[in-house]
Design a protein around this nucleic acid. Structure first.
Lengths: 226, 226
DNA sequence: TCAAATCTAAGTATTTATACTTATTTTATT
DNA sequence: AATAAAATAAGTATAAATACTTAGATTTGA
């Protein structure tokens, strides 16, 4: 049984992949994350065999995520599943240490082939991807990219919380979104209602919204909740 | 050549479907929209043979969209592609006039079978969907709904909206959840702010919530919005 | 066409949220 | 021990939402 986690900010996509994998006995999806940051914690804690990762995600991209995971030397393999056949993405993924790269349009058969190859410790790059690589290599453009040690730009701001919320603010964000009033929240956290108001004001300012609904929507959009 | 448009708020999903369809010669994707409202304009202008629609979308859901399109009596067929096997969604789609309903987890083969059937003017509901329908029929809840072939059953059926919201209430629900104030909504709909307040009050009472956050959460919980 | 449902919008009142500022106390970090 | 960051909570205003009621105008189905 190969344990898998899905990392994608779109629930529908995760759900679709999960549905496909659930048809197969040899795979089991044991977790999901909606951004790279959450995924790192998840991978470290539940140690899946394979993580299937989207590239474009809020908070932290799949590429950054794979890069960061390398230092931990965990046995988890990373298969990038992207809708982009961009040369840069593919090369960056390889540099970051990905074990596979598939385009979203790949057939189920190819998807399965890739998972099984990566599961066995091999690398798998889809036909389309390979041709892109060959094209690159032939034109000599990518040699430096492929050779260069993966010293990718400092990702300080992007790896942090996009809105830099404090712990308390985060806590209050969740309670506010759930429909609790400031009075409720204050009671629950044993603090003054005025304090709650300040936290709420600050976090709303940080996130650039002007009411709870927008707050909820933005938090959802950035995968901060649910 | 069957002309298709894709309606889904997730670019990745649209792209995935497009990729799948592009492998087939008999289909051509001639347009995309990310919500029901845009899709109506698109369908009216480019008249595709089939519109593949997600259900949960911002601005206007796929179900509302299909419902609204019926009045125009265009030749376009509607296939709902949803990740939800919710009975309500399926019945609502049928009521609205959809020609097919597929779950996101359906295989490519089934997807193609559905498109070809709908293209020929038949209706297609996936196996999972059928079993849900049969379950419903057996419990005698929706027989009348299913008997009325292509006729559009009125919106206010018990199966449609669990809280029996009126059209206006539904409209205001969406706007409120998106973060608009009563003043904003009033301006947008060209009605008095006081009217908006009444609708809001009524719909909140119907749904048994006491603030917008709860409203948003409950609406999401019941799949009334994206 | 007649009744029912819906949409419209006013009144009245209370509560809650939003929009700040200032300031003290705690808690980490160096 | 010094400094920064975070949490605490007050003040002052205004805007908005919530909680109803009543009631006329319109739309709509039987």
């Amino acid at each position: 049984m190969i344990k898998i986690i899905l990392v994608d900010d779109h629930f529908m996509v995760r759900d679709g992949i999960r549905a496909i994998l659930e048809e197969e006995d040899e795979y089991k999806v044991i977790g999901e994350a909606s951004n790279g940051k959450d995924a790192i914690a998840l991978v470290a804690s539940i140690k899946p065999d394979i993580a299937i990762c989207d590239i474009r995600m809020p908070e932290m991209s799949g590429i950054e995520m794979v890069q960061n995971m390398q230092e931990l030397k965990l046995p988890t393999k990373f298969v990038m599943l992207s809708m982009h056949d961009s040369d840069e993405y593919i090369l960056q993924s390889i540099n970051a240490g990905a074990d596979g790269y598939l385009l979203k349009g790949a057939s189920k058969e190819e998807f399965m082939k890739a998972l099984s190859a990566v599961g066995r410790g091999e690398k798998y790059f889809s036909g389309d991807v390979s041709s892109i690589l060959i094209k690159r290599i032939k034109s000599g453009i990518s040699s430096d990219v492929l050779d260069s040690e993966s010293k990718i730009v400092e990702t300080k701001e992007s790896s942090n919380n996009p809105f830099d919320l404090t712990k308390r603010e985060n806590q209050i964000l969740r309670l506010a979104i759930s429909g609790k009033t400031n009075k409720d929240i204050a009671a629950e956290l044993n603090i003054s209602k005025r304090t709650t108001e300040v936290h709420r004001f600050n976090l709303m300012k940080k996130m650039g919204v002007k009411n709870v609904s927008e707050l909820g929507n933005k938090a959802r959009e950035y995968g901060m909740i649910s």
